[in-house]
Design a binder for these strands. Structure first.
Lengths: 224, 224
DNA sequence: ACCTGAACACCGTTCAAGT
DNA sequence: ACCTGAACACCGTTCAAGT
């Protein structure tokens, strides 16, 4: 059509599993979980939807691969800290940060908790508890408890992000939540009403760390 | 066809929100989460799929109503115990038992944590922590931490149940999980390999209670 | 070996038409 | 007011046909 038609044709880069996963992550981050369909993915990769199946087995696998991509590096690099408890905190905060940045990771973890990266996480956490002096017989329970706390946060954060994404208004979402929260009679729900303001104004990271410290304190309590 | 054809025609009971929810629960319990479709539901109620929309707004609402139905009663009746910590344990165990009996409740909680029944749960838990002597300023964090631990268990239990449901063989599922679990080099994952046997043989209820006690011990630690 | 895109099976949801 | 069931829009996935 135009005069620069004769410049070398844009070499279409061939598809690969990495490019598919990268495109999936871009859609998930930019347009939300519901926007990820094989048709949308094919369009963003300028290919047919069937082509994707040559590189990933199905949507579950694709979601797992995307999760693994953003999670594994964060977990691998985490775990620093002079005291063992700090190292455990650092690992947990690594996951926290990933979920804040990519809420769909929270959805995926809540649905399919045992991603490969979670094994690395369990390893690091167990090492931390061991270094804290937790007896061998309690290591598994401590690790499991921390993982489950993490998964619970993931579920809650992902649900909140999904609602935010729909209404584009964080304050409105929180107001709605607090309204439902305080729907019961104050006489029947004194603590809920007492703590409703904190629900509205709490800092997620601070609450996350406070809960983490509860588990760490409980674990410290198990020292021989 | 047969001679008792002239008995009074089976009076077809009219539809209602309760009957729809009850039928949904029956499908979820009996045939699994994937079996719940509006077509299957309509068939089991001997009606058209459009009729259901007269009683429930959409599938999300239906799932929430089903969850509320099995969860609210369990939570309302729980919370007994002579010591405050026992009362908190009792509430948490109530949810544990519901999820063991109806794994789809775990999926739903992991996806949509703030069901109405969860407000009652938060109320009871907060009362327990207060009675344990947790300072007012830490009540919200303690309650949130316990809820998130519960949600994490819900996610994990539901995922396990989904896998069990597919392969009809709990041992096989566990073997596969442990195999993936111990896939890494023993030198790189010493704790994972050390604890793999416990992953295979652990009692869910015991592990759940052990994690719960970690949080309770941490909370007790906050006493003024 | 890898890509194309129409076709298939199956959803949730709507709605004109009935009673 | 409530029910019926075909129709619609939209999925994930498959597959014959191409290169």
């Amino acid at each position: 059509m135009s005069s620069n038609d004769h410049q070398p044709k844009q070499q279409k880069p061939s598809l690969s599993r990495e490019r598919v996963v990268a495109a999936a992550i871009a859609i998930l981050d930019g347009e939300g979980e519901n926007a990820l369909t094989f048709r949308a993915l094919a369009k963003s990769l300028s290919t047919g939807s069937g082509a994707i199946y040559w590189h990933v087995a199905d949507k579950r696998t694709l979601l797992a691969a995307a999760t693994e991509h953003v999670l594994s590096e964060a977990i691998a690099q985490s775990g620093r800290g002079t005291h063992p408890a700090d190292a455990v905190r650092d690992v947990a905060l690594g996951v926290f940060d990933v979920i804040e940045a990519h809420p769909w990771v929270g959805t995926e973890l809540a649905r399919e908790p045992w991603q490969p990266a979670m094994t690395t996480l369990f390893e690091k956490i167990s090492a931390g508890f061991d270094a804290m002096g937790v007896p061998r017989s309690a290591l598994f329970y401590c690790g499991s408890a921390l993982v489950q706390y993490l998964l619970g946060f993931a579920a809650q954060a992902a649900a909140a992000a999904r609602h935010d994404f729909q209404s584009q208004d964080r304050t409105e979402v929180l107001t709605t939540l607090v309204a439902r929260w305080t729907q019961g009679e104050p006489a029947d729900y004194p603590y809920v009403h007492l703590l409703a303001d904190e629900l509205r104004s709490h800092d997620e990271r601070e609450a996350f760390l406070a809960g983490l410290d509860l588990i760490l304190a409980g674990a410290r309590n198990l020292q021989g």
